[in-house]
């Protein structure tokens, strides 16, 4: 049954690719990546709300709330100079090197529920990495400005993205927090554009949209 659905899914995808090529529709698929709890879904929701009026998915303070990649298609972003791009935004599960259900128990979760969450989160990371290999044209890499950007996972992920020659914008998120130091992120990744924003209150997202037009357009 699974194989049937996969074959069906592949056929469907091929057909839609064919249609897209036929109509010469130019679409850029942007993946929002980053460690858990960096604010990826909050940003995806903001982008979707600002340009389409919809939301992408639920947000929570417990890590690994997003455990399946979620896609919002046909978001048209326009800039101050009138230029536009059509993009699909893929909100991905937080990428990490270790997932332990004990982490979720601290948030008052039951053991069984926490184990399921850990398992789903693990599958989610595999899925996010799969997307990165196959379907992504550009990356928004989210970081929490109040945390140390030199985490092993960040260095690895930026390296992987660079090796795939994908354009990347790094976001220093959560500048609304009192201990946010976006400059630390700028000095950690001087080779890429870094935009400091607050996905929560919307501070500086206009700059992000302009940067997206510049780098992904």
């Amino acid at each position: 049954m699974r194989i049937f659905y996969q074959t069906y899914g592949t056929a469907k995808k091929k057909f839609s690719n064919f249609l897209n090529r036929f109509f010469k529709k130019k679409r850029t698929r942007i993946g929002i990546y980053g460690p858990p709890n960096a604010g990826k879904t909050t940003l995806a929701n903001r982008i979707a709300r600002d340009w389409t009026g919809d939301a992408v998915g639920p947000v929570s303070e417990i890590p690994h709330e997003t455990r399946r990649a979620r896609k919002k298609e046909d978001i048209i972003i326009s800039g101050a100079n009138g230029s536009t791009i059509t993009m699909d935004i893929v909100d991905t599960p937080g990428v990490t090197t270790k997932i332990d259900y004990h982490e979720f128990l601290e948030f008052g979760m039951e053991k069984d529920e926490a184990i399921i969450r850990a398992r789903e989160a693990t599958e989610g990371v595999a899925e996010a990495m799969h997307w990165l290999r196959e379907d992504i044209d550009g990356v928004i890499y989210m970081l929490d400005s109040s945390l140390d950007p030199f985490m092993q996972v960040n260095i690895m992920m930026i390296g992987i993205i660079e090796s795939r020659k994908l354009p990347v914008i790094i976001i220093a998120n959560k500048i609304d927090l009192p201990d946010a130091v976006p400059a630390r992120i700028r000095s950690a990744f001087p080779q890429h554009p870094v935009v400091a924003i607050s996905g929560l209150d919307g501070r500086n997202v206009e700059t992000l949209y302009e940067t997206m037009l510049e780098y992904f357009g």
């Binding site: 270790k98 332990d100 004990h102 799969h130 290999r133 992987i160 795939r164």
Partner: peptide
């Protein structure tokens, strides 16, 4: 409920994990 993930390997390998 406790997993170690090798993301570099995931980025390279052709296998796709669908469920744990």
């Amino acid at each position: 409920g406790t997993y170690e993930l090798n993301i570099e390997k995931m980025a390279q390998s052709d296998e796709r994990i669908v469920s744990v």
